[in-house]
């Protein structure tokens, strides 16, 4: 069930595939993301803006979303970078989401 690469999702937006809990990779399946190693964390497919929300489990944050578009030649391109750090929390992280909204990147 594993996907190559660190992103998974639909065409109009790809979510980080690194768990917000202890950094393990998520695999996709069914209606949501389940970290197949840590099935404790489940994420919804999520809103386009806020990222994939945590449905159950110890992951403290939604999965960040990478905005994806299709260019003129039909190739997938990333419109922007991932806006917040991927993976689990750490001391220097702070509320990166708030920082990002405040425009103090």
């Amino acid at each position: 069930m594993s996907l190559q690469g660190k992103l998974a999702g639909t065409v109009n937006g790809r979510f980080s595939q690194v768990s917000r809990h202890v950094d393990v990779v998520l695999a996709t399946g069914g209606d949501g993301f389940a970290a197949s190693e840590k099935v404790a964390d489940t994420f919804s497919r999520g809103a386009k803006v806020s990222g994939a929300k945590v449905v159950l489990g110890p992951a403290a944050r939604p999965l960040p979303r990478l905005p994806i578009a299709v260019d003129a030649e039909g190739c997938l391109i990333a419109e922007d970078d991932l806006s917040v750090p991927v993976g689990p929390g750490y001391w220097e992280r702070g509320e990166a989401e708030v920082r990002q909204k405040g425009g103090t990147e």
Binding site: A60, P88, G89, Y90, E92, R93, G94, A96, V98, R99
Partner: peptide
């Protein structure tokens, strides 16, 4: 939002 003080 400071870059310190996150306790996971």
């Amino acid at each position: 939002a400071d870059q310190a003080g996150t306790l996971p």
